[in-house]
Amino acid sequence: MSQTATISSAGPTASQDARVEARGPRPTPFFTPRKIVIYSILFFACLYFLFPLYVMITTSFKTMPEIRWGNIFAPPIEPTGEAWIKAWTSACTGLTCQGLSPGFWNSVKITVPSTLVSIFIAAVNGYALINWRFKGSEIFFTILIFGSFIPYQVMLYPLVMITRELGIFGSLWAVILVHTIFGMPILTLLFRNYFASLPVELFKAARVDGAGFWRIFFEIMLPMSLPIFVVAMILQITGIWNDFLFGVVFAGTQNYPMTVQLNNIVNSVQGSPEYNVNMAATILTGLVPLIVYFVSGRLFVRGIAAGAVKG
């Protein structure tokens, strides 16, 4: 002990050594005023973000008499799943009273093919843009990216005419086509950037070995692009499931997706509103993207951040 003291007082080098020994994160108390301010602001922000979710869930398990007492904060006294059953099977949209289930299946029928087709086309685009550049390919790509900023309303009516000419207006095919078109810019960007990050030697080696466009794509590029496929799928599933405009314009009454059905159920003016059914229906519609969000975690963040990364 006394020896340490003598050494440290002996000269500057020794005292520096002692400091090096004491390095590392300084143990700070958890409840500093600064931390309290930070955590309380974050806590109140979280209240704002969580309150609607809480209200949705509690309201959906209440009975209508309980709701009419008028306390939106109160948890349900006698939780009941009746509103959920009604929302799924028998809530009225103004035309029919089949609940949300047809809308759910329509959304599935729209989302699955749209996601697969749009991702496949975008993957091929990205691959061609990086590995098989041709004259004008970059110009097409630039217009594609800028096209993604054009408001949909501008292209809506001509697209209605085109789909009408093709004889698919008012069917699921029209919605799938439109989703494929408008998903193309962001997905192509995503795949283009991903393929650009792969070592070009791989491509060259396969080329030397005599593999052609499709063979390299299916046997080399595709197996390597699983991570970006997952990101693209997250992006497309949530995006297409949440779409309203294309569903209401192109699908036709029979094929309305879930969002459109939901809006018709809640905002239809007939009868007295059943808020518990409305909230159950709202949660049901939000459930698919929410599950995707919670399951995918960080990949979801990557997916949406991909929209912000420029090529």
């Binding site: 979280c46 309203f244 939000g286």
Partner: peptide, 13 residues
């Protein structure tokens, strides 16, 4: 997670 989950939901919801 809490701050971002609304972004996964549609505008209709």
């Amino acid at each position: 997670t809490i701050m971002l989950y609304p972004f996964a939901l549609s505008f209709i919801v």
